[in-house]
Structure formats: C-alpha cells, structure tokens
Amino acid sequence: MEVEFIAGHNLYWIISLLLLVGLYGMLAKRNLVKKLVGMNIFQTSIILFYVAIASKRNATVPVIDAALGSVDPAHYINPLPHTLMLTAIVVSVATTGVGFALLISIFRRYRTLDEDTLLKRMR
C-alpha cells in the first residue's frame, strides 16, 4: 500500500474502529446505560464519517468570504454533509432522550438496569 493511500485513509479506519466500538457497546454490553453510551458512540462516528467525506483539501469553512472574491466551489468545504449531520445530531439527541425515558420507566418497575438481573426479575 502506498503511503498516500494510508495517509488518506487512516481517518476512515479510525472511524471504522469507532463504529465497531459503538456497535459492540450496543449489542454486547449487559448494562442498559452502557448500551445507550454505545449508541451515542455509534451515532457520533457516523457523523464523523459524514464530516470526513465533506472535507476538501485547500478549502475553507462553508461561509462565503467576500475577501476570496468570486465564488468557486473548490474554495469551500462541501456544506451538504454538514447540514445533514446537524439533523443527525438532533435525531441522536432525541433518540437518547427517549432512551432515558425508557430507562427511568424500566428502573421504576424493576429497580435494576442490568440486563441479566432484569431478565430474572421479568419472569
């Protein structure tokens, strides 16, 4: 593999690892709060992926700068993924909020947030 490829892709690999960590937290952790932590990590890494694909070498933040003169798309970072991710962040907060509500509701009934204990008490 060429150096340039590695340099250009190491961020993707970090993101991939983060996605795996998040997914691991959601699927394998036995504590319900930890699952929610995993979900946040998972969603943040997706956001990171989008922000990463938006970036452009030798380009600046997507706010039109009159000093740069005529508007050339090459001068500005792709704004579309940023926009999408604003929405995604909000969605992630909303989901987390619903998750919290469910956690409280579960705790109120079973006095535990551990999946194994929960399964025992549900019987």
Binding site: T44, I47, A54, S55, A59, I77, P81, I89
Partner: peptide, 15 residues
C-alpha cells in the same frame, strides 16, 4: 478541525 463549524458548535452544545 475539518471545517465543520456548525456541526462542531451543535455537537458541543448538545453532545
């Protein structure tokens, strides 16, 4: 760092 100022701001406030 990647130039997504709006996203960064939102993530800081929210996350």
């Amino acid at each position: 760092v990647m130039g997504a100022v709006d996203v960064a701001f939102t993530e800081a406030v929210v996350g």
